[in-house]
Amino acid sequence: MGRVVLVHGIAQQTMGPETLVARWLPALRDGLALAGGSLSSGEVKMAFFGDIFRPSGTRNLGEPPLTAADVTDPLDQELLLNWWAEAARVDPGVSGPAATTRLRTPFVIQRALDALSHSRFFADLADQLLVGALRQVRRYLTESDIRQRVRQRVLDTLTEDTRLVVAHSLGSVVAYEALHEVGTAYPQALITLGSPLGIRGMIFDRLTPAPQAGAGRWPAQLRTWTNIADRGDVVALVKTLAPVFPGAITDVSVHNGAKAHDVRPYLTARETGAAVRAALDRLP
C-alpha cells in the first residue's frame, strides 16, 4: 500500500530496504503511540538508494581506508569544517577551529576529524566513516548521474496511495528534489528529520530546482511540511526551514540526547508521532 514512504540518509550502503524498515518501523510506531496513533507494516515502504554508493567487489584486498589526506575536494572540506564548528558550539568538550589545541598535527583537516571523533555527536566514529559520509553528500550534489539515480529510487517507491514522505538527513534533500519531479497530486505531506536543506552555499544553493531570489521552491503538491530538528544536531546546521522555504513549514524542536542526528530518536519523539498522525488523519 505504501501510505508512508521513508527516505534514509547517508552511510546506509551495506543495508537494504527491508533491513532499514525493520529498524525504522518500531521507532516510528513508538512515536505514533505517544501521539495516540498507529500504523501497520503494510502501510510503510522504504525508498532505498544506499547500494548506489556501495563499491563493487573486486579480487584484490580492497581499497585503502580513507584518511584526512583524501579530504581534498573543497566541498568536502567546507562541510567538514562546518560540522566541526557546529560540534564545538553545542558540545563544550570540543575545541573549535579557532581554538588553540595541543594537537601536534599541522593539518586542519586532521584536526577537524580528531575533534569530531571525540565529540558526543560522532562518538568515536572512525575517520574512514566520516570521510565516506562527506563523499556521499558531495557526490550526490555534484555528480548528475548519481543524483538522478538516487532521486529515481524515491520516484519508483511513490504511488497514488502515498500520502506522506518521512525523510532523514541527506534523504530530505533527495525527497525534496524528487517531489518536484512527481507531477501528481500526491504525496501531500512531508516530514523532514535532521535536515541539511537550509545550509546556504553547500546545500540550499545547489538544490534542484534552484532557489529564486534567495527563497527555496515549494513542492506544488504539498499541503503540509513539518521540519523536525534537535538543537544539537550537527548535520542540521540550520534548524528552522520556514524562513528559507516560503509556504507553510512547521518547524519543531526535539531533544534526542547524545545521538542527536540518529533517526531512531527522531522517530520515537512524541512530536514526530504527532506530525505523522496529523498528516495521515488529515489526508484521505
Score class of each variant (00 low, 15 high):
Gly171Glu: 10
Glu177Pro: 05
Thr184Gln: 14
Gly194Ala: 14
His168Glu: 03
Ala175Glu: 00
Leu193Cys: 12
Ala178Arg: 07
Leu197Trp: 09
Val166Ile: 15
Glu177Ala: 06
His168Leu: 05
Ala175Ile: 01
Tyr186Pro: 00
Ala185Pro: 00
Ala178Asp: 11
Ser172Met: 06
Gly183Leu: 09
Leu190Ser: 02
Gln188Arg: 15
Gly183Glu: 06
Ala178Thr: 09
Leu193Glu: 09
Pro196Gln: 11
Val182Arg: 15
Leu197Met: 11
Gln188Ile: 00
Ala178Cys: 05
His168Asn: 04
Ser172Asn: 11
Leu179Gly: 01
Ser169Lys: 11
Tyr186Ile: 01
Leu190Gly: 05
Thr192Asp: 01
Pro187Gln: 11
Val182His: 12
Leu170Arg: 10
Gln188Lys: 14
Ala185Phe: 01
Leu193Phe: 08
Glu177Arg: 08
Ser172His: 07
Val173Asp: 01
Leu197Pro: 10
Gly194Glu: 11
Ile191Thr: 01
Val165Met: 03
Val173Ile: 15
Ala167Glu: 02
Thr184Met: 08
Ser195Leu: 09
Ser169Met: 06
Ser195Asp: 06
Ser169Cys: 15
Thr192Val: 05
Ala175Phe: 01
Leu170His: 10
Pro196Met: 12
Ala189Trp: 00
Val174Gln: 05
Thr184Glu: 10
Val182Pro: 01
Val173Thr: 14
Glu177Val: 09
Ala167Met: 08
Val166Pro: 00
